[in-house]
Design a protein around this nucleic acid. Structure first.
Length: 841
RNA sequence: GCGGACGUGGCGAAAUCGGUAGACGCAGCAGACUUAAAAUCUGCUUUCCUUCGGGGAGUGUGGGUUCAAGUCCCGCCGUCCGCACCA
């Protein structure tokens, strides 16, 4: 047996064995219980990064463990292959986005294979493949037929130089990230999916997701943003154009007598009508819209209003009129686009009223005695009883809300209403590299769906990116087609689908991939839901919400009998690294850093001293990435995998370090020595080691199940330490044999190598996970802590299950205890069997 | 502003139910083997005092509950994350 494990030979060998054997191909027909383990599929950006390695290693350990536990495991991999970077590459390098993407996929597939992941490559898919997106188009048409798709005008960020629509993240300080041009807001006709139809279901469904992090559920809950309130109507004292009244929404109907103004959104129909008549109002509205859309700008934007001169009649007092403003902070797409202002009890209204000299009334107070207390400094949003509110006086807030809603409903001027923060999902993207929306626009017939037998609508390849804008729009032939309904001249929709649509159902396609339809219902239902989904927390809201919506939409249409796609969710931490920076403010990559003569870090090429910056997520901009491939070349897949699992809890960030990977390498070699070295003679059993072994089997199983890989790693170290410290025996040989199976999910190459060398049957990947003997999980002797007044003074060994009386006697007789007691009897003795005795002196 | 998470040695961390704080790893120190180095092995490693028997302090901070608190409760400080004019 070689004295060292050689990963260069072993990795390639076992990877090809698994590949040829089809070891990890999931069998749809298997009689075993199923387990679907999935990691979020990667965007093929070029090369695998450490974040991928960590993510896929975690899923792989679970997948391999579940296989050994007897599950039929589905563990697939694919590519989230549409998106903007491909178009950017096309513009920069004059290469077709498809060519760039497919070449990246080839590179990254090879890189993933070198890490030895137990993936079913037979199910590999790429979303940019017509064989995938054609089915997505079919599903889109199903949603269309079910009334879950509609088209309306919507504002976008428009870059006038690049002639393209920008995502919010691409707008920096009001300018396009690429062109630097001032971004305009433009109205375009765009497609929307009716996710709001499912708002209630998506919110309620969170309760059942008990294997999701609370944090993610809370983020989704806030995003959906349900609020209970009332919608009611203000009549205008004098009609304005055709408008005699307007609706407002409030969550505080109890404060209705504290109102001192009403405000309309600049986009409100009444505001728009006023702007047509009065240039000063048009100017004000234009000013409101000029401000940027970034969070920072909104935060600092002042509350601005314009008094229209209109008067609204208070619904509970025809004599009482309120001024109507147009205000920049009122959003058109939440509630009704109009509010009533209660400055005393809403901070934003308070600021507005203070600025424009409007009355600030108190209608809620700690007690009825405080009715005359002015509201000062800031709004009083606390609970209390109603005051200065006529028939509501003395009621608590909840009772007053209910009473106002009841009266409004009885008298017909308003009603209780639930409002949602969630908006419909705009899926139109004015881009080439995405799934074409399968719609044809016909002057005679309107928007006509492409018949399913004409799918897929394939992207044309002969496009050019030398002119800004969407190449589909100016393609000479592609967009010109006959209308599927009337046969007349028509044009294709040139927008493509948001890439989040692609990732909203890929997990279903992995489970079942017939050629002629998106999936087979029965086969998909056999695998789904995904038992464990693992990915970055950055997808906590959008991707996970969209996928949940898509699954429920399919259920609604009868295509899949399933409400929730992901039973278990785990969000892993990032891989981080120190950053290095030169005095002239350049970031320096770790592989260009070396230790200078004085021990300080310098840039290798220039000898410049470096400042060590914060530990941050590996990113190209900070130049603190470490490419996994050379690391795998040097240390092998197992050392890299082991490092990814060690030390940091998986939900927390992991700092990459040279010392860390060295340590992992040493452990792989140590494992090799333990498992292939001379085991010596000795036939006797070693009860202590037997116990340690079975406790370890149990602990590792539990720790892998709960994805606590760092703890499983510690369990392995403890067992390895115990084995090395004990003399040869039959128990020791058994422990070594078992150790190999225990590490197999984490470091599969060295495990296969040892397994084969030891004459193990078949592959260790197919071997059974060891069973822990329950009888050996408990110690027959325990250490009892001896405390005096809660402080540890000594420990004593005692047989497990020793009686309270005997434990007390033993503790009181203890020399340390006697010394402290000094002959006096203890005042009190607390005995916790098998754990401790605490003597109160 | 609203919501949430977290704070433990030089470092990453563990402590699953309120019961021996610091398992395990990294780094470090001392030693063994070696001509030497690498590799490997052994021991030490929270901190302060010590007459070497021990003793004191210690989980961001100040209180509280308890025989007993990293863990529970209240206040404060700090770090990070999400949302952000949501009526």
């Amino acid at each position: 047996m070689a004295s060292r494990f050689n990963p260069i030979i072993a990795d390639a060998h076992w990877q090809s064995v698994w590949d040829k054997d089809g070891t990890f191909v999931a069998d749809d027909e298997s009689a075993r219980p199923k387990s679907y383990v999935l990691e979020m599929f990667p965007y093929p950006s070029g090369r695998i990064h450490m974040g991928h390695v960590r993510n896929y290693t975690m899923g792989d350990v679970l997948a391999r463990y579940r296989r050994m536990k007897g599950f039929e495991v589905l563990h697939p991999m694919g590519w989230d292959a549409f998106g903007m970077p491909a178009e950017n590459a096309a513009m920069e390098r004059k290469v077709h986005p498809g060519e760039w993407t497919w070449s990246n996929i080839a590179t990254m597939r090879a890189q993933l294979k070198r890490l030895g992941f137990a993936l079913d490559w037979s199910r590999e898919l790429a979303t940019c493949d017509p064989a995938y997106y054609g089915h997505e188009q079919a599903l889109f048409l199903d949603l269309f037929a079910a009334g879950l798709v509609y088209r309306r005008q919507s504002e976008v960020n428009w870059d006038p130089v690049d002639m393209t629509v920008l995502a919010n993240e691409q707008v920096i300080d009001g300018r396009g990230w690429r062109s630097g041009a001032l971004v305009e807001r433009r109205k375009l006709n765009q497609w929307f999916l009716k996710i709001t139809d499912f708002a209630e279901e998506l919110l309620d469904g969170l309760d059942a997701l008990d294997q999701w992090p609370d944090k993610v559920k809370l983020m989704q809950e806030n995003w959906i943003g349900k609020s209970q309130g009332m919608e009611f109507r203000f009549a205008l004292a004098a009609p304005m154009g055709g408008h005699k009244s307007f609706e407002v929404y409030t969550t505080r109907p109890d404060t209705i007598f504290g109102s001192s103004f009403a405000a309309l959104s600049p986009d409100h129909p009444i505001a728009v009508a006023l702007a047509e008549e009065r240039p000063e109002i048009a100017a004000f509205i234009a000013e409101c819209k000029r401000g940027g859309t970034t969070a920072a700008e909104l935060e600092t934007a002042e509350k601005k209003g314009f008094d229209t001169g209109l008067k609204a009649i208070h619904p509970l007092d025809p004599e009482w009129t309120l001024p109507v403003y147009i205000a920049n902070f009122v959003l058109m797409d939440y509630g009704t686009g109009a509010i009533f202002g209660v400055p005393g009890h809403d901070q934003r209204d308070f600021e507005f009223a203070s600025r424009y000299g409007l009355p600030i009334l108190r209608v809620v107070a700690d007690s009825t005695d405080d009715a005359g207390k002015p509201v000062e400094g800031e709004a009083d949003s606390g609970d209390g009883v109603l005051v200065n509110s006529r028939f509501l006086d003395g009621m608590d807030v909840e009772a007053a809300k209910a009473d106002v809603i009841r009266r409004a409903e009885a008298d017909g001027w308003g009603a209780g209403k639930t409002a949602w923060r969630l908006r419909d999902w705009g899926v139109s993207r004015q881009r080439y590299w995405g799934t074409p929306i399968p719609i044809v626009h016909c002057d005679a017939c309107g928007a006509v769906p492409v018949p399913k037998d004409q799918l897929p609508v394939v992207l044309p390849d002969d496009i050019a990116f030398d002119i800004p804008g969407n190449p589909l729009e100016r393609h000479p032939t592609w967009k010109h087609v006959a209308c599927p309904a009337c046969g007349g001249a028509a044009v294709r929709e040139t927008d493509t689908l948001d890439t989040f649509v692609d990732s909203s159902w890929y997990f279903i396609r992995f489970a079942s991939q017939p050629k002629d339809r998106p999936f087979d219902k029965a086969t998909a239902e056999r695998w789904l839901p995904v038992d464990q989904y693992i990915g970055g927390v950055e997808h906590a809201i959008l991707h996970l919400l969209y996928a949940r919506f898509w699954t429920r939409a399919l259920q609604h249409m009868g295509e899949l009998d399933m409400a929730e796609p992901f039973q278990g969710l785990f969000t892993q931490g990032m891989v981080t690294h120190e950053t290095y920076r030169t005095p002239d403010d350049r970031w320096v990559s770790p592989d260009e850093v070396e230790r200078g003569a004085d021990g300080r870090l310098v840039e290798a090429a220039t000898g410049q001293a470096l400042e060590i910056g914060r530990i941050e997520k590996m990113s190209k901009s900070k130049r603190n990435t470490v490419d996994p491939e050379p690391i795998v070349d040097q240390y092998g897949a197992d050392a890299v995998r082991w490092f990814m699992l060690s030390d940091s809890p998986p939900e927390r960030d992991l700092e990459w370090s040279e010392a860390g990977i060295e340590g992992s390498w040493r452990f792989i070699q140590r494992l090799w020595r333990i498992t292939t070295g001379e085991t010596g003679g000795g036939d006797g059993t070693d009860a202590a080691l037997d116990r340690k072994l079975h406790q370890t089997i149990s602990a590792i199983g539990a720790n892998i199940e709960s994805l606590s890989f760092n703890k499983a790693v510690a369990n392995i170290y403890e067992l390895a330490n115990a084995i090395e410290k004990t003399a040869p025996s039959a128990s020791r040989r058994a422990a070594i044999e078992t150790l190999v199976r225990l590490v197999a999910p984490m470091v599969p190459h060295v495990a296969e190598e040892v397994w084969a060398a030891a004459g193990g049957e078949g592959l260790i990947a197919d071997a059974a996970w060891p069973e822990a003997d329950p009888a050996l999980l408990v110690d027959d002797e325990v250490t009892i802590a001896i405390q005096v007044n809660g402080k540890l003074r000594d420990t004593e060994r005692a047989p497990k299950g020793m009686s309270r009386e005997d434990l007390e006697k033993m503790a009181v007789a203890n020399a340390h205890v006697q010394r402290i007691l000094g002959g006096a009897p203890p005042r009190k003795v607390i005995v916790v069997p098998d754990r401790l005795v605490n003597i109160v002196a």
